[in-house]
Design a protein around this nucleic acid. Structure first.
Lengths: 192, 192
DNA sequence: CTCGTTTGTCTAGCGGTGCTAGGATCAGTT
DNA sequence: AACTGATCCTAGCACCGCTAGACAAACGAG
């Protein structure tokens, strides 16, 4: 019995190692550099071992994405809870979101840019993803305005943030004007 | 002399064929299906011929992107010029943009999602890209509001549209509520 | 303690990718 | 008619995600 437990623990530990290594590698050199061969070499196992933990590369990306969703939710909640007043909370949320995207580009890609095989906006959406959306909604609910569904408003606000994050990171927007963009977005979208 | 001209014409024709085929293939089966081998087979030449026209796959994607930018600009201008009043023009712009993204997903990917090796937001940004941005700015300029730089406002509005487009296409947002989202976005962001 | 059995891991290989070197072929010129 | 240069293709490189099958280590039973 205890033998099985030890083995299970070791397996779980190795799985964590795989995800952490994939994430580190992606953060350092981009997801293109995260090949199954390189990943296997870094964890000091052979390639097929990866497939005893995950169905394929997609699932590994998905695992990193779920980690990222949890961290994003935490970051957003930490930022909003430290701000006073609805306007300040929304601005803090926006900055926290964009900072997360800029600070963890590979994780953000895993979440929203790459195919991690995760279901979104559905019943079987994994909990961390729902919770990240909930973290946004908690604060944005305050500034939704009359007659508007808070969920819909959150979607729109989120889309705007996502657009800013991705266009900036892809070089389509210059990062210098990030702050005035946030100010404008918050001033217009949020009903205070 | 005339011989050289004919050859040049034929070369240009073949280049158009490459881009058109890449685009069609991408639109039908996604960019993943656009491999140099498949593309070469479709144009009935061998693989290396592609490399006598383009540096690599990136540049082919870039060529499709430039085509798309021109069409996007045209679509936006057509939609806005058919609408009466600033509010209606902005709403028409938003719908035209999102329709374009939904109707030409592969082209939209080439433009904003994939690496086509194009420069953005810089001096040497290709003309079609600048012009597509200009097409947005022309209409959004009217509803920017006092004290705000129209360019900055256009960036923010564009980012919001881009977010809606990409999140919807990736299954992160359900397409059913597209219209109310547009309404909300226009009502809040545009100063009429 | 020894012997099957099960479990785990690795080596080797499949079909695919983007890209390129080098030889063959064909057109235009003299 | 022979040369020359442009043009194109065959073949191959190193890499990709993924998997079959051989092998070894660890386990439980007698």
């Amino acid at each position: 019995m205890s033998v099985q437990e030890r083995k299970q623990r070791e397996r779980a530990e190795r799985e964590r190692l795989i995800v952490a290594t994939a994430r580190k590698l992606a953060e350092q050199q981009g997801w293109d550099a995260v090949t199954t061969r390189r990943l296997a070499e870094h964890i000091e196992y052979s390639q097929p071992v990866l497939y005893s933990h995950f169905r394929g590369k997609r699932e590994i990306i998905g695992a990193v994405a779920l980690q990222g969703a949890a961290e994003l939710a935490t970051a957003v909640r930490a930022a909003t809870s430290a701000a006073d007043g609805p306007r300040a909370r929304v601005a803090a949320l926006a900055r926290a979101y964009l900072d997360f995207a800029a600070g963890n580009p590979a994780v953000y890609d895993a979440l929203f840019q790459l195919d991690g095989g995760l279901a979104y906006a559905q019943e079987d959406t994994p909990e961390p993803l729902k919770d990240a959306f909930a973290a946004l909604l908690e604060t944005l609910d305050e500034v939704t305005g009359d007659g508007i569904d808070p969920g819909l408003f959150t979607e729109v606000f989120w889309a705007a943030l996502h657009g800013l994050a991705t266009l900036t990171r892809a070089g389509r927007l210059l990062p210098e004007d990030a702050e005035p963009r946030v100010e404008l977005l918050v001033d217009r979208l949020a009903v205070v």
